[in-house]
Structures are given as structure tokens and as C-alpha cells.
Nucleic acid binder design. Sequence first.
DNA 1: ACAAAAGTGTTATCTCTACACCCATGT
DNA 2: ACATGGGTGTAGAGATAACACTTTTGT
Lengths: 224, 224
Amino acid sequence: MSQKYCYQYPHPAVTTDVVVFTLRDERLQLLLVKRGGEPFKGSWALPGGFLDIDEDLESCAKRELQEETGVSGVYLEQLFTFGKPDRDPRERVISVAYYALIPSDRLELKASSDAADADWFPLDELPELAFDHNQVIRIAHERLVSKLSYSTIAFQFMPEAFTLSELQSVYEILRNEPLDKRNFRKWISTLDQVEETGEQRRTGQHRPAKVYRMKHPNRVEIIR
Amino acid sequence: MSQKYCYQYPHPAVTTDVVVFTLRDERLQLLLVKRGGEPFKGSWALPGGFLDIDEDLESCAKRELQEETGVSGVYLEQLFTFGKPDRDPRERVISVAYYALIPSDRLELKASSDAADADWFPLDELPELAFDHNQVIRIAHERLVSKLSYSTIAFQFMPEAFTLSELQSVYEILRNEPLDKRNFRKWISTLDQVEETGEQRRTGQHRPAKVYRMKHPNRVEIIR
DNA sequence: ACAAAAGTGTTATCTCTACACCCATGT
DNA sequence: ACATGGGTGTAGAGATAACACTTTTGT
């Protein structure tokens, strides 16, 4: 095995890892992959991998996400860079962590991927994780929760078309508390971020709900 | 010149850069160093340098800060990681940027340092900068301004003992607008972050001001 | 007709903002 | 005695939170 890339001073390896959130079965869940190689072979870990030498950091995170899940075009944001000297037993590794939000209608995992096995786990039922990934997840969750209150980031969990009750349910799951329906709707209308599609959704033996879409589906607005 | 550190795959270099803010002459200023070597020799740049292979990222930022300014024990927070493939002409360099806040009574620069020349520049009178450092500074400033409104980060600019008028002046400089004295003091008192030292400051021909200190000088609290 | 979620306004409470005068000191 | 910044409270406006009934559909 050749060692052909040589430097005057030691260089760390650089990876990106992605914390992929979704809402599934009324719970906040995230994507883990089972490691196929050492170290931590057989453990669950965040999807991620080494940075190509000519690749932008965000491109690397997007590529990993695409390779593991087949998903692209979702909300992705840099989270934090982790670099404790001993966080990887093989060599010095700096990990630039990102987090992503996937709408609940796009969470079919690509069948065959780099990682033999990938699956969704509820945030409060995580298995033991490789590396410092528990810490990465904790920080990603804190960021997500705090962004809830001053941005429209939660909209990134919504499919293209949705009802206001569905949107309210997303906020209730994320904030883990019931919200008042009238106040919620008043608040949403002040945000000026959604519009009626004109469609209705008839589901169950009750009045049909108006269907809405986001005015700017790819934008996360800072509010208040 | 030997190239003795070899890897199977190419590795980027990793640096930390630090955006050091202070308040000086009633203005928000930041610390720049003049580059002594190529590339961008003679240009002003952020203090920073290469990560030692067994060094934690934050330790590296602290070390650079210490080497350039002689200052330690100040507020330091990771900002963002910059990694565009062409941001350094020598080789691929990933820069983990931090920002720091220095109290206005500790800004004497160490005379002899790595960087031959180091100086404070008002944020709105910056020279041309090396690398992508203009972008780094822009993002650091945005972060600082946004943290102003939901944390006690501005207190990190204060010396150990200060008057409420001095504190108000800090907020006025940072927010670039005058504030109402009574409302400001009411707000400060709801934060429950300062206490009277019992001392007074007699300066000029007017009533002396009560002197305050922070209750938790090293903590930045999330407020509101 | 009834069950079930959709939809819709008003009032009370709290928070935020505007605003002006007396106080203690140095000269 | 006067000039200077230090120190203090109240009232109106705006924002937030609490709260219940009617509508439309499927069975």
C-alpha cells in the first residue's frame, strides 16, 4: 500500500458528518448508518466520510447525504467542527459536522449504499454510537431547537403541500408541547410564508382542510 | 527540505484563524497582523496559523491569540469552518475560524510576536485582507451582532469593574444607536447579571457613578 | 344524527417604549 | 452657583396568551 501523498508537516484528515433529521411516526428521528469497517465496525454512526482534496466542504456533506440516502436539495447547514486529537483511533481527524432536515415524504432510503445498513432512529432511542457522534447529535439538536424560535426552519420538514394542522403538529412534536390552534394560525399568518394552493384535503369523517404551500420553499427566514 | 509525513490519500492542511474584537476609541475594532511571508506577503490578515497535530482546535486558536496579543482567558467561540478548495494558493487549507472578545482594558499588543506587525483597525476602515478574511470578518460581525440580542456576550467587552453608563455606551456602539437610559437600566436589572461592588467612580464635575461587576464574569448567558 | 377535525375573534395580561426631573460632585 | 453626567418612575401602546363555539364532512 503506497503512501504517496507527502508533506513537510503532519496533516490531519478531514471528514464531514451529517446529522439528518426528519419527522416520522410523530417523532423526531435521525438517520444512522452501520459501520462496515474498523474502527467501530458494526456500530451505528452518522453518515459521513472523507473530504476529497478538491471538493468544497458543503459539497462533501451533500455528496455523503446523496450517497447514503439518495436525497438531494434539502436544507443543509454547517453545525460545528470537531477536532479532539483522539476522536478517531486511526489518525488525527477533523470532522466538519453539518445538519440536514428532510421532509417527511422523502425518507425512503436508497437500498444499496456505501453503508451496508442505514436506518431511522427516534432521537430518544439512539443506540451506542461510534466516535463522538453522541456529542455531535446533542449539539445539532440544540441548534435545531433554538433555530425553531427565530427562523422558519421547521418548514423544511414539510412536504410541498400541507395543511395548517399538519404544520402545527410539526411544531408540537419539535417543541414537545401542545399549542393553541387559533394563536398558532395567527402567528403563521403574520409570518407571511405560506399561501393557499386552492386545493382541499378530505381525510376522515370531518370537514376538509385547506391545503397550503410555502411561498419560498428553499428559504429559511429569520423571524422576529 | 524533507517531505516525511506521508499518507495514502491527500490530506488538506488545517489552520485556525481568530477574529479578535474589541472596543477602542468608541469604535468596534479588530486585530490584524501583517503577513511576513508568502502568500499575500505584506498584506494584513487575521491572526492564525497551522494546527499542531496533537493540538485541540480551540487550543490552537487560544495559542495563536496568546502568541499575537499576549492575551488569554478571554471569550472565544468557534465561528465557522472555511474550506473552499482555492482559498489558499499553496495547498488545500481548511480554516476553522474563531472569534474572540477582548475587554477594552487589556488591549496592549505584545511587542515582539510571530507577526512582525500587529494593529487594531476599526471595522469600517479595514485594509485589503489576505485570503478570504474579509468574508470571515463579515460572518463574525454578523454573529456578534445577532448574539447581542439574545445573550450577554457584550459584557465580555467590559473590564472587571464598570459603571452602567459605560455598559450602555458599549451597547450603543455595537448597535449604533442611542438607548434610553432608564429603559436600559431596567433591562440590565432584569438580567440579574451584575452587582454593585460598593465602590464609586468619581470622574469629572458631576455625581459619582456606582461601580458594578459581573456576577459570572466568564459566562455568556442566553437571555430572553 | 353524530363523531371528528377544521376553522374562526375577543378580552385580559404582560412587555416594551416613550418621556423629564432631581442629585451629587468639581470647579 | 453652575455645569456635568448619575440616577430614578409612570403611563400608553403593542404583543402575547387564554379561551369556546360553529362548520363541514363521512359514516
